[in-house]
């Protein structure tokens, strides 16, 4: 995968292979916190922050600890534990040094441990065997893709609350149909950049 430019990796991670609508990863927060615009933005920002840091850390651990010792099969156990404890550390760090940011993102951080998008980004950079910089760019692209889609979706769902929806489809079913239309739109980018 080394022949693809950083910009290509970035755009492909963000739009062409959008993590939510094309890959179906991170659907729980996508449907769970997109009811209100504020919470969608908060969750999206928290994902950008945690995903970038955890991708960097898991890359170092995988390539400098697991591979030299021949322990690649332990990556599932290692990654999930690293991410879970990393989220705790980041929470403590933010509380102490960036209290303003903590105030706005704090409640979303514990939820992130169960967000499969974070773990998926770590597995994917291993699968693609990216270099460190590529992995970092990839993580930023994936998380920006997440925040773009969740904000668009929250905007639509706020409108849906007042729309005359058939009774049987109110709530989650109509949200699924909305997501289907958004996914159809993103499918239009398929094949760009060859990833």
């Amino acid at each position: 995968m080394n022949e693809i430019s950083l910009f290509g990796i970035f755009l492909s991670a963000m739009i062409v292979n959008n993590i939510v609508l094309i890959r179906f990863i991170g659907l729980c927060p996508f449907f769970g916190v997109s009811g209100r615009m504020e919470s969608a933005i908060g969750m999206g920002m928290a994902v950008i922050f945690v995903m970038t840091v955890s991708s960097a850390v898991t890359w170092v651990i995988y390539n400098y600890l697991l591979v030299p010792m021949g322990l690649e099969f332990l990556k599932i156990v290692t990654f999930i534990l690293v991410i879970a404890s990393l989220v705790q550390l980041e929470e403590l760090f933010m509380k102490k040094y960036i209290p303003n940011l903590y105030k706005s993102l704090g409640i979303y951080l514990p939820l992130i441990t169960t967000n499969c998008a974070i773990l998926a980004a770590s597995f994917l950079h291993v699968d693609y065997s990216f270099s460190f910089i590529q992995a970092l760019v990839y993580a930023i692209g994936v998380s920006l893709g997440f925040i773009v889609v969740i904000i668009l979706f929250a905007g639509i769902r706020e409108r849906l609350d007042t729309a005359p929806v058939p009774k049987a489809l109110a709530g989650y079913p109509i949200a699924f149909f909305t997501a289907a239309l958004m996914s159809l739109a993103f499918l239009g980018f398929k094949g760009l950049f060859g990833l």
């Binding site: 609508l21 094309i22 179906f24 049987a168 489809l169 989650y172 079913p173 109509i174 949200a175 699924f176 149909f177 997501a179 289907a180 239309l181 996914s183 159809l184 499918l187």
Partner: peptide, 13 residues
Amino acid sequence: PPGAFITIGSLMG
């Protein structure tokens, strides 16, 4: 991918 959303949306409906 859109078909997955359509299917589960219809089932729940």
